[in-house]
């Protein structure tokens, strides 16, 4: 393999993974659509969806594997590195906007929709005619009391522990980051492993919390607007923590294999940044979903 000079830009050829990704996504969503449309019928296993997921997993390893190989082969100069950075930043920004839609829904429901159903402002007729006697409180499962009475997860219980876990993990990854800048590989790896463990523990407790909500509190996706916003926000966050944890594991393995240097560690920084992003989203969740 030839090294690439500073005034060239490495353009890969014959990219086979994008089309694999398209096929994988396509099969996944077709499988999901068919499954969703047969939810009311007898339970079926969505094999097509699983096949799609499998293709996507293979694709991720293949695609990123190729990129890592090229990176280790010194095909990426500073210029390519800058493109990756710009790409990662705007990708995370788009993720922020995705969460903004759900936080926006929570805000709208609490500030406008629920008070209006209770007759606030010029909406007295709505309350009297349609939902007579409905008192707009938060949390609520709506004037029709959908899914029956429920209780909420106390902010002092598992959410507190989880906040502590994620905050600690962002401290440990920052220590690892400093250690990498100081070229202390062993220290970096140790603190990365700590971060992975903290992330995994967070996920474990999040699952515990869902089990608790479904089995003992009667708080489900169907519990009106509270249940919907609660599970969609925490659920999508949990999904991102899962992806982030997998990314952390990959980065840790790469560190053990000797990848990254003090002055060349975009992969590490991108994942660290992603982790900070899921941590801040959690902080937002803790404040707006559990506490306030």
């Amino acid at each position: 393999m030839t090294e690439i000079s500073e005034n060239q830009y490495y353009v890969p050829h014959k990219a086979k993974w994008p089309i694999v990704a398209c096929v994988g996504l396509f099969i996944t969503v077709i499988g999901a659509s068919l499954k969703f449309n047969s939810l009311d019928l007898e339970p079926t296993t969505p094999w097509l969806m699983y096949l799609g997921f499998a293709i996507l997993i293979v694709m991720f390893f293949g695609w990123f594997g190729e990129v890592i190989k090229e990176s280790e082969a010194k095909l990426y100069n500073k210029h390519v590195d800058a493109s990756f950075r710009a790409g990662m930043i705007w990708f995370i920004f788009s993720e922020v906007m995705f969460f903004a839609a759900f936080f926006g829904a929570l805000f709208y429901a609490r500030t406008f929709a629920v008070p209006w159903l209770g007759g606030e402002g010029t909406n007295l007729a709505t309350n009297v005619q349609l939902w007579s006697g409905y008192e707009p409180v938060w949390p609520t499962n709506g004037p029709a009391d959908l899914n029956g009475r429920f209780e909420t997860i106390s902010a002092f219980a598992l959410p507190l522990v989880n906040t502590l876990l994620l905050l600690t993990s962002s401290v440990t990854i920052t220590i690892a980051h400093h250690a990498l800048l100081a070229n202390d590989r062993k220290k970096t790896i140790i603190w990365m492993i700590a971060t992975v463990l903290l992330g995994a523990t967070f996920l474990f407790y999040q699952v515990e919390e869902y089990i608790e909500a479904y089995q003992h509190l009667n708080l489900t996706l169907e519990s009106g607007i509270y249940g919907a916003t609660f599970f969609m926000l925490t659920g999508f966050h949990g999904l991102h923590v899962t992806l982030g944890t997998i990314m952390l594991i990959v980065i840790t393995i790469r560190l053990i294999k000797g990848h990254f240097k003090a002055d060349n560690h975009f992969g590490f920084e991108a994942v660290a940044w992603y982790w900070h992003f899921v941590d801040v989203v959690w902080l937002g969740l803790f404040i707006f979903v559990y506490v306030l």
Partner: peptide, 13 residues
């Protein structure tokens, strides 16, 4: 200084 969820859970459904 702050009370989680500001308002109390409604009595019963």
């Amino acid at each position: 200084w702050i009370v989680p969820h500001g308002l109390q859970l409604k009595p019963s459904g």
